[in-house]
Amino acid sequence: MRETFGEYIKRLRSEHGFTLTQLAAKLDLDSANLSKIENNKREFDEKRLTLLSKVFDLDIAKLRTEFFSDFIAKKIYENNCDEETLVLAEEKVAYLKSKNS
Rank of each mutant, 00 (worst) to 15 (best):
S69F: 14
K74H: 14
G6Q: 09
N80L: 06
A25H: 14
L34Q: 09
T50H: 11
S101C: 08
T4N: 13
L23E: 02
N33V: 07
T21I: 10
A73L: 12
T19A: 02
L12G: 00
Q22Y: 03
T21D: 05
E46Q: 14
L86K: 12
E38W: 05
S98T: 09
S53E: 10
E7F: 02
Q22W: 03
L12S: 02
N39F: 14
L88F: 04
T4E: 11
T85L: 05
I60P: 03
L63V: 04
E91A: 08
E43N: 15
N79R: 06
R11S: 09
L20I: 14
E3M: 14
R64D: 02
E15N: 11
L88Q: 00
D28W: 06
A73N: 14
A24Y: 03
C81G: 06
R48Y: 05
Y8H: 09
D70L: 02
A24T: 00
E38P: 05
K62M: 08
L29F: 11
L86T: 13
F44G: 00
F5S: 06
Y77S: 15
V55F: 04
A32H: 07
R48N: 02
R2Q: 14
E84N: 06
K62Q: 10
S31I: 04
D30M: 07
I72L: 08
I9M: 10
N33G: 10
L34W: 11
R64W: 05
